[in-house]
Amino acid sequence: MTSNPNPSPDPNILGKFTSVIGLFGAALFFAGWIYRWSYFYFFQLEVSNLDLPTQSFLMVPLQIFFGDVWAIGKTAIAFLLTAVAINITLWLIAIVSEIVVRIFNYLLSNRIIPATQRKQSRSAKLLNSLAVYSSSQLRFVDFLRSLINEIVIVSWVLIVIFWLAQSQGIADARRDAGQNSTLPVIALISPEEKFAVGRKLDDVFTNPTLKGYKIIGDRGLFNDLRGTEDTDTSNPNQLRIWRLLLERSGWIYLFKALPANATPSDRPALIAIQQGDKGYLMIRSPEVSKTSSP
């Protein structure tokens, strides 16, 4: 009887596919978290305090990597450079490892205390043991080499993803804080006793009374806000547009868009309004109304 040759093990395609999907999902979540962290940090908000749904972090990276032609090109160039950087890093590690192996081999062949000597000092014994172990292990331990390679690859990939997500988050935040924002224009109407600031609908020129309110902190921030609570587009050179940043967990976050001549270091002042039980009237619009202000 002829014995059948041992069948070659079938590749575990499903297992490899599952591993790739898991790593891809972790990379997407990491990119989404970094993107939103940098985006909301531009508006002085901590993303960890916003109670955003976890699944939303997996959708944001699609905009980072494939949002437009420039994003696709930037992503392709970044990962191409990453592949080059990974190979250069592994090449340098291989050179350093070879040098270390040669040094230990030299120490092993030229021991400070000859092996024929009966008594060796403790330091000589330790040096001899280290040299013997290192020369026989550093070159042949595949696990250690594989672990180093994986650490290098993962580190470079995370660095590139962090850079892409952070730069895109800051760029989108600057865009949304300016005159070309994609965030909705807002009109928020509330009962008078709920607001310390705002314009009266029947008398927009009179400041509301501040009786019963107290303040801690920078009074100048409050004074800068009073009188500018309404959107005003009458002067094209000094547009004043209020936009809605976020509505989450019972809070409404509003800001006044930055002027066209704002510098990259400028940040908009953010207003957080807690929703009450008496109700609000909120109107959202993709652009400012054509009706002139009274």
Rank of each mutant, 00 (worst) to 15 (best):
P184D: 12
I216G: 06
P184N: 15
G220D: 11
F162P: 05
A171C: 10
G198A: 04
E229P: 01
D230P: 00
S190V: 15
I189P: 00
A196W: 11
I170V: 15
L210W: 09
G198M: 03
S181P: 00
I215S: 10
I215L: 12
I159W: 08
W156F: 14
L183R: 07
E229D: 02
R199K: 08
A187C: 08
V197D: 03
E229G: 04
A171R: 15
W242L: 06
R240F: 01
D202Q: 11
S190L: 14
G169A: 04
F222A: 15
L210Y: 06
L221G: 13
V160Y: 03
R174C: 04
D218H: 09
G212M: 00
R174D: 00
S190Q: 11
I241T: 07
A173G: 00
V185Y: 03
R240Y: 01
F205S: 11
D202K: 13
Q166A: 15
V197L: 13
S155M: 14
E192T: 13
L183I: 00
S155A: 14
N223M: 12
V185P: 00
L225V: 08
A187V: 09
V160Q: 08
W163M: 15
L244I: 00
R219W: 04
L221V: 13
F222C: 11
I159L: 14
N180T: 10
G227N: 00
S190Y: 08
D202V: 10
R199L: 03
K194G: 00
L245S: 02
T228C: 03
T231K: 07
V160N: 05
R243M: 02
V197G: 06
P191S: 05
R219I: 13
R226K: 11
L188P: 04
T233D: 03
D203E: 05
A165D: 04
N237K: 12
V185C: 09
T206L: 08
I186L: 11
T233S: 10
G227I: 01
D218F: 09
N180E: 09
D203N: 14
P236G: 04
N237T: 12
Q238F: 01
P184E: 07
W156S: 09
R199Q: 04
D218P: 04
I159R: 11
K200I: 03
R174L: 05
V197K: 07
L221I: 15
W163N: 13
P191L: 06
G212I: 00
P208K: 15
D172L: 11
N237I: 05
Q168L: 07
S190E: 08
L246A: 03
G217D: 02
V157R: 12
I189F: 05
I216N: 11
R199F: 02
I241V: 15
K214M: 08
G217T: 08
A173Q: 00
F162M: 12
G212Q: 01
L239T: 03
G227K: 02
Y213F: 12
K200S: 07
P191I: 06
I215H: 09
W156Q: 12
Q168N: 14
V204E: 05
A187D: 06
D230Q: 12
T233I: 12
